[in-house]
Every structure is written in C-alpha cells, then in structure tokens.
C-alpha cells in the first residue's frame, strides 16, 4: 500500500488486514517500555491545517513508539500563514525526503491532489473536510473487535451532525464493505441530500432508532463548519431531541455500547453520566487509535510493494494543460 486516502480505496481484505495488524500493536502501548524498532530510520511529518489533539497526538505517538522520527507542523505556525500555497508547502516538505506525510485539511481531496505531485512520499489522510477520515474508522473497528469478533450483521446508529461528518461518511463506506448496517439519526438540516443512497436507514426521531442498535455512535456538532445558524434552534432543544442520556441508553439492549470519535461536548450530544458509564468505549477508542495508526504507518513503510513508483511530472503537465486552455480561450 502506497497511500491511505480513504475507506473508499480499501478492499475488505485490506481493512481487515490493517485492523488485525492494529490489534497486535495494542499490547505494545501497555508495556512499561513502549518502544519497538520497527520504523527506525523512517521520517514522518504530521501536517495539520486544522486543529486536532487526539489524531495528531496519536499519529505522533504511533510513529515515536515504533522509533520513527516524527515532526509536527500546524497551520498556525507554518509558512502557509505567510502566503505559501498548499502545493509549495507539500513540495518543500517532500524535498526533505520524509517517508510519510500525514495530512489534515479542511478541503476534501487534499491528499489525492498532493499525492499526484509528490511521487516519492506516502500520504495518509488524517481527515479532509467532510470527505473521509479512514484511520478513525479503522480505530472504531479495532475497538469493536475487542467486543465482537466481526462487525458483520451489527447495527451502528450514528447520531448528530451527519452533514459535516467525515467519520459518518467513512463509516457508511466501510459498512458496505464489511457487511454491517448503519442508521443515521439527525434533523433534516444536519443530513446531506440523498444520504439513503449509501444504503443506510434514515431516522429523524432518535428514540425510534434505538431498539436493535448495537452501537450508539454520537457525533459532535461541527459549528465551525456550519455556514448558517439555522441548522438547529438551540443547544438545549438539540440536546432534548438528539442527546444521549440515561433514559435513552436504558432503552437500548444491554449489550449496546456507546462510542464517540471525540472531542465530545458533555451536555450537548451526550450527558456526563453516559459518557463515563461502563458501556462507554470512548477511551478505548483513543487507545486503539494509537495502535491502528501504528499499523497504518507500518503498512505504508513496509516493503513488498508491487505498485510501480510513479515518476510524474504532474506540475509540468498541469501547466501545459493550462496553456492549451488559454489558447482556446
């Protein structure tokens, strides 16, 4: 595997391979000496154009525990602030010969775009806009693997801001590949158009979606991505209609677990007593996140790649195309 752009690109076998590889790394983080030499001599750059605590930290820890050299760059301190283009930042970093670039950006498709121009660097998507967040889904699958052997036939109910959620989108793609089903629960203002084309059940009433769910997967309201203020009337009203509280948790089966990709807003999508209950797997998700990212980095740095390395002169091609277009106009 050369890049990890999203769940869409992965086959069922590749997803299972990464989750199983992740499972073997869980134990490494529980040792007193949390270090293995697997990625010694590899360089990993975390390039984050959006704020992040757990994803960035877990990529950093994953790399460091496998002895790679990890560098973090956040947009607020990068040359982007001084007006450098995304492509120039990418090419500058690639010229320093890292093995892996981990990228988070607010615009969907950033990773695919950069990969076309940087033929020698492996790129991992750590979240691009509302498009995909593959390592979060692998994390969730690893967390659930510790409860059930296979997600096949299970029902994951995703509640909240589906419209802005890359996690929801990636789950919908993974569900089709792995054979679990997804229910989405949200007011119409927080649902993308035609979401049922992903093959999920759509609910507007949270209480109706709870019976039969194996996971209640809560999402944060991504107010920073909302372009208008009319997505929901008020926090209090949203909490009444779509917040997970003790009453709703009691309505679910006794084996139903609670998950959240974080960061969570207590009192909005989830109440404190549910978040801290024994049925909440939220902190297990964080632990599994480090292990899964170790697996992803190992798979990308590992040899045995059969794909030929593309030596593209993409930039020249793009400029020639622009010129040709200019002549036509």
């Amino acid at each position: 595997m050369k890049h990890l752009f999203g769940i869409a690109q992965l086959s069922r076998e590749q997803i299972e391979y990464l989750v199983n590889l992740g499972a073997s790394f869980v134990e490494l983080s529980r040792r007193s000496v949390k270090k293995a030499p697997t990625l010694r001599g590899k360089t990993i750059i975390n390039l984050f154009f959006e704020n992040s605590t757990r994803t960035r930290t877990s990529f950093e820890l994953a790399g460091k525990r496998l002895s790679a050299d990890v560098i973090n760059i956040s947009a607020s301190t990068s040359a982007t602030k001084k007006g450098e283009s995304l492509l120039d930042t990418g090419e500058t970093l690639a010229a320093m010969q890292p093995h892996v670039l981990v990228i988070r950006h607010a615009i969907a498709g950033t990773c695919e775009f950069l990969a076309d121009y940087l033929p020698d660097t492996s790129i991992v998507n750590a979240g691009d806009g509302a498009h995909e967040h593959p390592t979060q889904i692998l994390t969730d699958l690893l967390t659930l693997k510790q409860t059930w052997d296979s997600p096949q036939g299970k029902v994951i109910t995703i509640v909240g801001d589906i419209a802005h959620s890359r996690v929801a989108r990636s789950h919908l793609l993974a569900a089709q590949k792995l054979g679990y089903s997804v229910r989405v629960v949200a007011p119409k203002t927080l649902l993308p158009l035609a979401i049922e084309r992903f093959g999920c059940e759509v609910y507007h009433d949270f209480d109706a979606a709870i019976p039969g769910s194996d996971v209640l997967y809560m999402l944060r309201m991504q107010t920073e991505r909302m372009t208008s203020s009319c997505c929901f009337p008020s926090i209090r009203e949203y909490h009444e209609a779509y917040g997970l509280n003790r009453r709703r948790l009691d309505m679910a089966g006794k084996d139903c677990v609670v998950m959240h990709p974080g960061p969570m807003n207590r009192g909005v999508e989830i109440t404190s007593d549910v978040a801290d209950s024994a049925r909440s797997h939220i902190l297990d998700q964080v632990e599994c996140g480090v292990a899964v990212r170790m697996a992803v980095l190992t798979a990308l740095c590992g040899g045995g790649q059969t794909e030929p390395v593309r030596r593209s002169r993409k930039r020249e091609q793009a400029e020639a195309a622009m010129k040709a277009q200019g002549k036509l106009l």
């Binding site: 391979y17 199983n20 590889l21 499972a23 073997s24 790394f25 869980v26 134990e27 490494l28 293995a36 030499p37 697997t38 990625l39 496998l66 697996a295 190992t298 798979a299 740095c301 590992g302 040899g303 045995g304 790649q305």
Partner: peptide, 17 residues
C-alpha cells in the same frame, strides 16, 4: 516488530501478541 526486513518483505500479516 523487531525484524530487520520490513523494507524488503513488508509487515507480517499475522502478528501474535
């Protein structure tokens, strides 16, 4: 995770803890 041949043969698909 301690092998010296990650670059040539890639990660072991079946790692036991």
């Amino acid at each position: 995770f301690y092998r010296d041949d990650l670059d040539t043969i890639g990660p072991n698909p079946e790692v036991r803890p």
